[in-house]
Each structure stands twice: as C-alpha cells, then as structure tokens.
C-alpha cells in the first residue's frame, strides 16, 4: 500500500448524497481478477454517454460534459468532496481501487458507509468525516474559487483551506500508523500468531462443532 502523509490537492466536488458503490464502479468491471486499472471506469455511467465494458479504451469514449470529473478545472484532482453516506451499498473494494487508481487520495464527506470507509484505509485512501457545516463551506468555496485546493496533513490530522482556515479530523491510532507507513496489516497481525493459535485452541475446546 502507498503510504499517505500529506498532500495539497485540487478538490473535485461531487454534490450528491448516497453515492453508492454501483455508481462508483459498475458491476461489469468487477469481472476483473486484478486490483489495478479501474481508474478509467470510475463513475462510468455518470462520466460517459456510452455503455462501458471491461477492457475498453476510454480515451475516445463520448463524455457527459456536465459531470464534474469531465470538467477541465478538476483535472488531476486528488481530493474528492462528497455528501452524506458516500460509498453505500456493495462491499466491492473495486470502489476504492477505482478512486485511488484515478488519482484521488482523500475523500471528505459528512458521513461514509461502514464497509467502504474501512476499505479506503486498506488502499492508501484517507476518508475524512467533516461536519455538514464544514462540508457546505468547502462546496461553496470550491464553487467560487478557481483551482481550489486543500492541504491535508495526516500527522497533525488537519485540513487547511487556501485562506489558512483549518479543521481537525479523527482517525484511530492503528489506522493512522498503517496509512502513514503504508503497512501491510497482515504482517502486523501475524506478529500475534501465537495469540491467535491460543485463542483458537480454547475456542475449539468450548465449541468443537465450529471446527467440523
């Protein structure tokens, strides 16, 4: 996993609530057995006016010009600004894979769906929960300031706007540690293999039917 420490990135505003993972990456692209290459199909049905198929070369596909990702000023954006319940629906990790592959490293929203939220951390994407008031303000600023950027610093857990105003966000120490160091969580867990084995032995003695 790519470590995440800080960035100063262009913000792309996606002003709708309940964006589901079917919208983030439609089902036909889930047929891939790879982890990479999903970026060109991110938000496929909202982004292109034809029907996308896996393996399609997207460079000449017809674009839906109104969709934010297709607008010139948001090219190269690294921060996705979203509304409530972002990432609801299916558990597909292809959603954060597509988001990361496209180039986003941070998503700011008032709330996220649980599974998507957890999937982000495994892929070097930082989901930041901000109050509805702050998110409203960021949408307003993004609409009125050309080339609007936010500076995100994981060490100090702060997001700073171009005017220098900032807010703090929460993250568990465990997730912060893994994200900042780009750590393989499996390796960390296997350091406790003896504890897992000891638990397993006790568990099996108490409920042998679980080990049929």
């Amino acid at each position: 996993m790519k470590p995440f420490t800080e960035l100063n990135g262009v913000v792309c505003p996606l002003d709708r609530a309940n964006v589901d993972t079917d919208a983030i990456i439609p089902k036909q692209f889930l047929k891939s057995i790879k982890r990479s290459g999903f970026g060109p199909y991110l938000f496929d049905e909202w982004r292109y006016s034809d029907v996308g198929e896996p393996g399609m070369d997207c460079t000449n596909r017809p674009l839906k010009k109104d969709f934010v990702l297709n607008q010139k000023q948001f090219k190269g954006a690294q921060v996705l600004l979203a509304r409530d319940n972002f990432g609801c629906g299916s558990s597909r990790e292809h959603a954060p894979w597509a988001i990361e592959d496209y180039g986003f490293r941070v998503i700011i929203a008032p709330s996220f769906a649980d599974i998507f939220f957890s999937n982000c951390y495994k892929n070097g994407v930082l989901p930041i929960v901000a109050s509805a008031e702050i998110v409203d303000q960021l949408f307003r600023e993004c609409a009125t300031q050309k080339g609007y950027k936010l500076r995100v610093d994981l060490e100090t857990q702060t997001v700073r706007n171009p005017a220098g105003e900032w807010f703090n966000f929460d993250i568990t120490p465990h997730r912060k540690h893994c994200l900042m160091n780009g750590l393989d969580e499996i390796g960390l867990t296997l350091q406790h293999a003896d504890e897992i084995k000891a638990f397993e032995k006790k568990h099996k003695a108490a409920q042998p039917w679980l080990f049929a």
Binding site: E93, N119, N123, T189, I196, E200
Partner: peptide, 19 residues
C-alpha cells in the same frame, strides 16, 4: 455476520482474524 472488502478477505484467509 457482515460483509468485508477484498483486503479483509485476504486478511481473514491469512490470519483467521479481522481487525
């Protein structure tokens, strides 16, 4: 019982646990 992402599928496969 709950759904997990693919990284977690790998984690459960390798460690029989979930963080």
């Amino acid at each position: 019982a709950h759904g997990i992402g693919t990284s977690e599928v790998e984690h459960v496969l390798a460690t029989q646990t979930l963080v």
